[in-house]
């Protein structure tokens, strides 16, 4: 990844962040917290809770992408690699106020990790022992990424592999590229 493009994206992220309206981080953290508690009450099983959070995130992502494209000035991504960089440098900055880094590319270049040390959603959270090996508190983020990318024809799978709330040294979301949706041609004589 060339450093000049990286710094351009950093600047785009900063600009979009500066332009956007801010709300209190505490309000977000507390709202999200009571949200997660409510879902835990409803579904009990941590695995199910993770799934629900992901689903919620997905529904946010498919809407948020339009806001991202409209406000960030990003036009076209030429590769999955570029998309990942833009998510971490522009989108994370714009919506969470933090910058993430992309690393851990596999040899086929279809899987990578987004790593971030600061997580505004989990600022005050201490997971009770019964959840430290099962719940991914911020699993919403995985859904947001999956939903947003799906709307620009990129199908991915996302999951947390490291979470500071579980005692890991950082937060890490793994993104695996599945396929590009083909553009639909309105007619096809051959079929």
């Amino acid at each position: 990844m060339s450093s000049s493009r990286a710094s351009t994206w950093n600047k785009l992220g900063d600009a979009a962040y500066a332009k956007s309206e801010k709300v209190s981080a505490d309000l977000v953290a507390l709202t999200y917290g009571s949200f997660v508690r409510e879902i835990i009450k409803d579904f009990e099983e941590p695995d199910q809770v993770n799934k629900e959070l992901e689903k919620l995130g997905y529904n946010i992502g498919i809407r948020l992408i339009e806001d991202f494209l409209a406000k960030s000035g990003i036009s076209n991504c030429s590769s999955f690699e570029e998309s990942a960089e833009i998510i971490s440098r522009v989108a994370f900055k714009m919506f969470l106020g933090i910058r993430a880094t992309v690393s851990n590319w596999n040899s086929e270049h279809n899987s990578c990790s987004i790593i971030f040390d600061e997580n505004p959603l989990a600022e005050y959270v201490e997971l009770p022992p019964e959840y430290t090996h099962s719940l991914f508190y911020s699993n919403l983020l995985c859904g947001v990424i999956r939903g947003a990318l799906e709307m620009v024809q990129i199908i991915v799978e996302c999951e947390f592999v490291k979470d500071q709330l579980r005692g890991d040294d950082t937060n890490e979301i793994n993104i695996r590229f599945k396929e590009m949706l083909q553009e639909q041609v309105p007619w096809n004589d051959e079929e």
Binding site: R63, L64, E66, D67, L69, A70, K71
Partner: peptide, 13 residues
């Protein structure tokens, strides 16, 4: 472009 901004804000949100 402006209409697109409005769509992102006042329709999708």
């Amino acid at each position: 472009r402006r209409v697109y901004d409005l769509y992102a804000d006042y329709v999708l949100k």
